[in-house]
């Protein structure tokens, strides 16, 4: 499953990244493999989405979220 498919309010664990380019930026923002994230909501027009990672809130476009493979945990 990819991050943009996770519904709001769900928590998920990051498994891997698909594209190298954005990968580094995501890592630096704290989106590391094995870390738990929570999808909090989306912008009024449905894109970008925003998530909670390691005590920070991060907004990213769906096209970027597509690169993040996750597993739902709750």
């Amino acid at each position: 499953m990819q991050l943009h498919q996770v519904s709001i309010g769900k928590k998920a664990k990051i498994l891997e990244f698909q594209q190298r380019g954005v990968f580094l930026k995501l890592l630096e923002m704290g989106l590391l493999p094995n870390i738990t994230i929570e999808v909090l909501g989306k912008a009024p027009l449905g894109d970008p989405i925003y998530i909670s990672v390691q005590e920070t809130l991060i907004a990213l476009r769906k096209s970027e979220a597509q690169n993040i493979v996750v597993q739902i945990i709750e």
Binding site: V22, K25, M29, P48, T56, L57, I58, A59, L60, R61
Partner: peptide
């Protein structure tokens, strides 16, 4: 520049 949108939302 970069064509992506990944931003931290401050509290």
């Amino acid at each position: 520049g970069n064509d992506y949108f990944i931003v931290e939302m401050p509290t």
